[in-house]
């Protein structure tokens, strides 16, 4: 085989394959979001936010740790807003200089989170006056977690990402269990089986070599 220019051929077939694998992995890692930055902030927000919620508004109205009644919700909201900002910045950085199908998918997917949660906020207020305060809290939490589960499943479908899809199924399941157990317990279940699990998922994925399932 005659080289077409001064660019030297790889020394051996094994070396060719090694270069391909290495370069593909580097490109995939740079073109997909860092899993820890993607899942970590949401994991922390749920773990800490719902954890504090459980400690202040425990099962049957038990106060496990004394603190102002408004504090847990303020902590949860602040952390959730922080996580949303991190996700937005991450999405922007990852899709930087990429045009085409996946940037449209990403924009629509991001927008669907915003629209569905805005819709949730605008509709659930309607039920505030008909329920006891613990049940109002449970209603908001259960719809928010259920929506998150559904959107993760949709994300898994869009990017053919089995883990993201599985996370959505898992969150839906633990949400059902937590809601069946009632106010207070729901916070504990979501903090640990939701928040801690997302954080762990981010850490585990970070350690694995990057790989896009939809090559």
């Amino acid at each position: 085989m005659t080289p077409i220019d001064e660019d030297p051929p790889p020394p051996s077939p094994a070396e060719s394959l090694r270069m391909i694998a290495e370069q593909r992995e580097a490109a995939e890692r740079q073109l997909s979001p860092d899993p820890l930055v993607y899942h970590g902030p949401w994991g922390v927000a749920w773990l800490v936010g719902f954890g504090v919620m459980f400690l202040r508004h425990g099962p049957g109205g038990t106060v496990l740790v004394a603190m102002p009644a408004w504090l847990p919700l303020a902590v949860l909201f602040t952390l959730l807003i922080g996580a949303a900002i991190v996700s937005g910045v991450l999405a922007g950085r990852t899709s930087r200089h990429v045009r085409g199908r996946s940037s449209v998918q990403g924009a629509m997917y991001g927008f669907s989170w915003f629209v569905s949660f805005a819709g949730m906020g605008l509709t659930l207020q309607r039920f505030d006056d008909g329920l006891s305060p613990p049940n109002v809290g449970l209603l908001w939490a259960t719809v928010a977690v259920g929506l998150t589960g559904a959107l993760h499943m949709a994300g898994g479908a869009v990017w053919q990402d089995r883990l993201l899809f599985g996370l959505g199924v898992w969150l839906t399941l633990v949400n059902v269990v937590g809601t069946a157990l009632g106010p207070g317990w729901h916070s504990l279940v979501i903090s640990l089986a939701g928040g801690a699990v997302m954080l762990l998922l981010g850490l585990v994925l970070r350690r694995r070599p990057a790989g896009r399932p939809n090559e």
Binding site: P10, V98, R99
Partner: peptide, 23 residues
């Protein structure tokens, strides 16, 4: 393709999903 620099270019571009373009 069987040239070190171009092989890397092609391998990197192959990681991009079909239908996407990279700046």
């Amino acid at each position: 393709i069987h040239a070190q620099a171009r092989l890397r270019v092609v391998a990197a571009l192959s990681a991009l999903p079909e239908g996407d373009q990279l700046a």
